[in-house]
């Protein structure tokens, strides 16, 4: 039997009819056409599918859509809310060369957002720990760590200008 669920994704409300066995990843990508969130391993290991549910980072590939009924979901599409001006995390990823093929990027950026909201001035060790649930087959991670440290600085400066993290 299909279940009726309500999701708020990046500020937009949706009412959906979903089969209980469908994952949040499938519903975001297939029903809402939000394909920024990737599907890598499908079993919780790689972090490519990371989104925030009520502010907490989770693996959307092993989260059932019915289990997040009524919740607030944030995906990479919500980072640059206007669709034009990039989020400081995105700016830093580009500038620091933290993106090669880009498959891991959306997940990495969502974990960076989660980390920087909790801890606006992370040490390198804390950044690496925050990324421990992510695999990147291209960059060797160093540029990603640098990008997040850079984003932390930008967000502090931007916050001074009244921009929301």
């Amino acid at each position: 039997m299909k279940h009726q669920i309500r999701l708020n994704v990046n500020g937009d409300d949706y009412e959906l009819l979903v089969d209980p066995w469908r994952t949040l990843n499938e519903v975001l990508r297939e029903d809402l056409n939000l394909t920024g969130t990737k599907l890598g391993c499908g079993v919780g290991d790689c972090g490519a599918c990371t989104v925030l549910v009520d502010g907490k980072s989770v693996s959307s590939c092993i989260t059932l859509a019915v289990a997040v009924d009524g919740k607030k979901i944030e995906t990479v599409e919500g980072l640059a809310a206007s669709g034009e001006k990039l989020h400081p995390i995105q700016e830093s990823f580009i500038e620091k060369g933290a993106i090669q093929c880009g498959f891991c990027t959306a997940g990495m950026e969502m974990s960076a957002l989660y980390l920087l909201r909790k801890n606006p001035s992370p040490t390198e060790e804390e950044i690496r720990e925050g990324l421990s649930g992510h695999l990147c087959r291209c960059t060797g991670y160093n540029q990603i760590v640098e990008a997040i440290a850079d984003a932390a600085d930008r967000m502090k400066t931007d916050r001074g200008k009244g921009v929301k993290p």
């Binding site: 919780g44 972090g47 907490k56 980072s57 693996s59 989260t63 720990e129 421990s132 649930g133």
Partner: peptide
């Protein structure tokens, strides 16, 4: 235990 996302679930 595990990683950040898994600990959050």
């Amino acid at each position: 235990t595990a990683n950040t996302q898994i600990r959050n679930m």
